[in-house]
């Protein structure tokens, strides 16, 4: 019995060390991914077929291939060309590129679902393209997709568990080490799972709240 308690304490200690890394990775990858998504989503409605095609290919490739494979590709593949970056940078780049593809899809859908009439009114009122995007199109698109964006951030957090394969000591890797050491899989993994669960569940609740607010503002459409 006492064994289990000490194991649990060990595990919790490691989770507390590793959780900031998880959050740091997730946040560091979220914003580049969002940026890629905005650029990609806008390019996806471009007049030029080649541009649209390139975006579609990017999205398709990342949606068809597993993240684990991609992070290996980056981590082992780049050094071959004398590009030497540490595991953390690798992880952030891999997460950003991979989730950037999903963000592109989300934003593309958000832009497509917008009321055309608002864009027309903006043109008729003399808004230039930049202001049209900045003041009218993007705010409305972003408001409509905030729940999906938060959902994507939950996916990013879950994918941080995979960066353990390139040696980053985030909580899954640490947890696994404790289990191998102490042979108490249930205690450790339950605590580990609970940690992820709490973080993700809170995000989910936050997303639902925002969705309610966004729906009330936009329901005029």
């Amino acid at each position: 019995m006492i064994d289990i308690i000490s194991v649990a304490r060990d595990a919790l200690g490691l989770i507390i060390t590793g959780l900031p890394i998880v959050l740091m990775l997730a946040v560091a990858a979220f914003f580049p991914a969002l940026f890629i998504g905005i650029v990609g989503g806008l390019l996806a409605s471009s007049r030029f077929r080649l541009v649209r095609l390139l975006v579609s290919v990017y999205v398709y490739v990342f949606r068809s291939t597993p993240f684990l494979m991609f992070i290996f590709l980056v981590y082992y593949g780049l050094p071959q060309y004398d590009i030497d970056i540490g595991p953390v940078t690798t992880a952030i780049i891999a997460l950003s590129l991979s989730h950037g593809a999903y963000m592109t899809e989300i934003i593309r859908g958000g832009l497509r679902g917008l009321d055309k009439g608002q864009g027309e009114a903006a043109v008729a009122l003399g808004f230039g393209l930049f202001h049209r995007l900045k003041d009218i199109t993007l705010p409305q698109a972003l408001m409509a997709i905030i729940p999906s964006l938060l959902g994507q951030s939950i996916l990013i957090i879950k994918d941080t568990s995979l960066v353990s394969v390139v040696g980053i000591s985030e909580i899954t890797r640490l947890g696994r080490e404790v289990v191998i050491r102490t042979n108490e899989p249930f205690v450790v993994f339950t605590l580990l799972a609970l940690t992820y669960f709490v973080v993700c569940f809170l995000l989910e609740l936050f997303a639902r709240q925002l969705e309610g607010r966004a729906r009330r503002v936009l329901s005029g459409q």
Binding site: I157, K158, T172, G175, R176, F189, A193, F197, C200
Partner: peptide, 13 residues
């Protein structure tokens, strides 16, 4: 539970 925990953790579990 499944949706809010990583697949890797479930596999290890």
């Amino acid at each position: 539970f499944v949706r809010n925990t990583p697949l890797l953790v479930q596999v290890y579990f």
